[in-house]
Amino acid sequence: MSSSNAGNRPEEVQLATSAHVKYIQSLDTRKDEYDYWLTEHLRLNGLYWGLTALHLLGHPEALPRAETIDFVLSCQHESGGFGAAPGHDAHMLSTVSAVQILAMLDAFDELEKRGRGSLGGRAQIGHYIANLQNRQTGTFAGDEWGEEDTRFLYGAFNALSLLGLLDLVDVDKAVKHIVACANFDGGYGVSPGAESHSGQIFTCVAALAIAGRKDLVDADRLGRWLSERQVPGGGLNGRPEKKEDVCYSWWVLSSLEMIGRTHWIDRDQLIGFILRCQDTEKGGISDRPGDMVDVWHTLFGITGLSLLEYPGLQPVDEVYCMPKSAVERVLSRYKK
């Protein structure tokens, strides 16, 4: 079981790196398309998806650094939280994207200089996120209106640990909440009682990884459930008896990686499936072969390929969904 023949596939498509780079670069030039405006609520997330993909493709400079930082900081509120675009309310999801982008661009110094709020800098963001923790149950809300979901818990852990501020929240209580979300199949749901879902499994296992509590995962049971997500054709689905989708190349595979079971699925077949979802001409990756591409599936196709050690890609961190080198650089600051 190795991925050694991944780069040696004369019969099959190769990764269309330069088309993907161009596709991502073109995303902010489509202001004459209706969809560009309808997706403004995802602008900051989209920037994170695109930038991460570019870093993994080995083209970190493909988006202008200074302008990117300016845009990110223009989305911040006095509370410390970030909206998806200027004029959009602050939310956990866009705040996490902002932190991840600034971390990738090594721009925390800009944040310290120019960040909004009375505390300013990292501290203000940490304050915003910490206030979204439900101190009774340990989980997190997405914003002041109170929707709770393990996605937000993971997002909080991701951003706070990158900021070196995880001690602002009650980690033990959050860990207990994750344990309460576990099901008999070894998976995790949105909240206690909810069905196991690959996306939520990623958020729960990655949050446990950040908390240093992967020992709480039933790795064998979860590993078998995750490995059973691979369907004939090589793609992965998100739940039993559902269709495959490129994005699960990330949610399922990163979870398998975190519990040391990546070799429980067929790597070459998954590589083949992801590559078949590319638009090799115009760039971008879609959910299934022949469908419309978008930046979200483009990122998760590429992160999947990176975990599968596809040649020429930078290694992705399975917990943070960022280049490993960036995560190591940021986290090493806080190591004593």
Binding site: D245, D294, W296, H297
Partner: peptide, 9 residues
Amino acid sequence: MADQGGSQH
């Protein structure tokens, strides 16, 4: 980042 809204399915 686990938000699927706005993506093409």
